[in-house]
Nucleic acid binder design. Sequence first.
DNA 1: GTGGTCTAGACCACC
DNA 2: GTGGTCTAGACCACG
Lengths: 139, 139, 139, 139
Amino acid sequence: MLVKLNFKAGKPAYLQIIEQIKFAAAMGEIAEGESLPSIRELAEQLRINRNTVAKAYGLLQSEGIVSSSQGKGVFLVKAQTPYKKNVRKAILGEIIDGLIVQAHHFQIDLSELIGLVEQRFEQFEKEKGMISPEVERRN
Amino acid sequence: MLVKLNFKAGKPAYLQIIEQIKFAAAMGEIAEGESLPSIRELAEQLRINRNTVAKAYGLLQSEGIVSSSQGKGVFLVKAQTPYKKNVRKAILGEIIDGLIVQAHHFQIDLSELIGLVEQRFEQFEKEKGMISPEVERRN
Amino acid sequence: MLVKLNFKAGKPAYLQIIEQIKFAAAMGEIAEGESLPSIRELAEQLRINRNTVAKAYGLLQSEGIVSSSQGKGVFLVKAQTPYKKNVRKAILGEIIDGLIVQAHHFQIDLSELIGLVEQRFEQFEKEKGMISPEVERRN
Amino acid sequence: MLVKLNFKAGKPAYLQIIEQIKFAAAMGEIAEGESLPSIRELAEQLRINRNTVAKAYGLLQSEGIVSSSQGKGVFLVKAQTPYKKNVRKAILGEIIDGLIVQAHHFQIDLSELIGLVEQRFEQFEKEKGMISPEVERRN
DNA sequence: GTGGTCTAGACCACC
DNA sequence: GTGGTCTAGACCACG
């Protein structure tokens, strides 16, 4: 997998790494159980401090997305959320409430809003389909 | 109108104020042109510094939701967004993208997600109907 | 003379009054020794509080531009600055320094800058010529 | 580079910092891409709160004069204004209008005013020539 | 009585 | 070690 950093954007490096790895995992670009680039490798490739990569990996591990074992590397764990379904729905519900209030201020009604959701979802799936797993690697 | 702060939550006070005023405005709890609680008043009621309220009001003003004038007060402006439709859709689109990624991590598919949106929307409308404007509590 | 207030602009009312009276005086619209509208009169005309007009007149008086005497009214005093020439030049010099630094950041050189000054000055004189003294009065 | 604060003057500290840094930048005292004193450093040196310096730097950033990145520092960006020529002239025009009105109140005519501008400009260029870049004082 | 500005202390995010 | 955010106190401007 390939990670790119945009230093101009305000986003911190470690967050950009996390996002891209999450996205790659969601896309199926990285298979379950497969190893990620090593900390040292990724740090060199991106020309950033190893601490920054380590921080990103650490947070991914604490989210249960990857697991690391000394001397072996870092691996993608099987996708599964730690929350029960009603908790998940409650979390999504809060995001949705904010979305609805914003849509209301923008004078956009329900049917239009749902149209937008469907449209965005389709584009998400389309991009997902276009990425074949395990394509890119450098160094 | 009534604002409540939850100090336990990580969310900063000024953001909680913004959200609740936006919500109250969307609900029709505050009529257009009507004045919001004065900065001092709300600050005392919430037992926080005036500047924190002032910051919230200032941001609401920069979003075009309220307008303030020295010596007079802060007023809810006529609901009308300054953005063109495509801009509004783009802003909502970003929120939706975040929602979709989160839903994906939670293994919730499109139909279920849209069901959630509809359900939340209905509840929003129901609550909105229950609030008759101009029913103010006093302190 | 006619004073107009723009409530939308951020500028406070009393400053708008001061500016317009100064400008009218510089333009010769008000003759030396002539009386200005009374505080009560101007306040009614502009539909603002008399304190606001009084504040404006008070500041004009402290700048030595008008003089007031109880029961008679407020009069424009003979134009003359209280400062000696070198002091005046020093004050202008500071404004000019700021102008030069700004022009430098804008990559505008001396000749262009002086062209701008001349152009603006001519327009100033033109507007001044167009106003005949003692034209407008209301009520 | 050296910043001095004049607490007696009515001007707020953050504005004094902005002016002096703009001046130093225009003088070539700070080279392009070079880092400014860190927020903490300057705050200690001036014996003011870090936030006051941060505010000054933040405004300089929003003017496009410096750029900052967390954990690294604040840097002078390549001199290049983001505005088109007519916009720049309009901005300078407003400053010039104020200058002309002030000069008028001081009974100083155009030729004298332009003489002052030229004189100040020459002094600006002379001082600029005297400062060789990269000559830094330390504390 | 309004709202706005300036400075500050404590804490957080980042590298 | 960097810069950024949140809250606050004192003071100012305004009507």
